[in-house]
């Protein structure tokens, strides 16, 4: 007799647990307002990443095409996997002194692990993280970027 009631209680409790789970899914089925799906490729226009988002390393330029990079090479030393290469040049500035400037600030996006050490250690805050996150390209060479824009100069007052 005892095992008989146990048997039916087992069936009843089992069915109840299944319907309890179905109740949860049913609640969301009949409340479409609770869905959180983002229509990703279609919402590109108003998709905004967080300010801190580490998309890729960029070098911000102002409206006069000037950047803050002095070519000191601290980012190159701090990069754990060699994604930054700095090719510097020496020019004679207005005061007649020799000055070391960057010729090319080469950034290998394919090697970057987004640790943020280059941005953090830069003494003149010349580097920043961009918001771009769609990095897929057809050719690997397109992942090598030159961060300083052509014809750009160093901002005045940055040592």
């Amino acid at each position: 007799m005892n095992s008989f009631t146990e048997y039916f209680r087992g069936i009843f409790n089992g069915l109840r647990s299944l319907f309890q789970g179905l109740g949860v899914t049913g609640k969301y089925f009949f409340k479409p307002g609770t869905t959180v799906t983002q229509q990703y490729p279609n919402n590109r226009k108003d998709l905004k990443m967080f300010d801190m988002f580490k998309g890729e390393v960029i070098m911000p330029h102002n409206e006069k095409n000037e950047h803050k990079c002095t070519g000191c090479g601290i980012c190159e030393i701090n990069c754990p996997n060699g994604s930054i290469e700095i090719i510097s040049a020496t020019i004679v500035n207005e005061d007649g002194k020799k000055q070391r400037i960057i010729d090319k600030h080469i950034y290998h996006l394919g090697m970057c692990t987004f640790c943020g050490l280059c941005v953090k250690t830069c003494p003149s805050q010349a580097l920043a993280f961009g918001q771009e996150f769609e990095h897929a390209v057809f050719d690997r060479t397109k992942l090598t970027k030159v961060l300083n824009q052509p014809g750009s100069k160093i901002m005045k007052g940055v040592e």
């Binding site: 300010d51 801190m52 987004f114």
Partner: peptide, 21 residues
């Protein structure tokens, strides 16, 4: 995580001596 650290899974938020930001 993304708002504070900049990464979602791979946060790299700590550094010896404190936090990155």
């Amino acid at each position: 995580f993304e708002e504070t650290c900049g990464g979602r899974m791979i946060v790299s938020y700590n550094c010896p001596g404190g936090l990155m930001n």
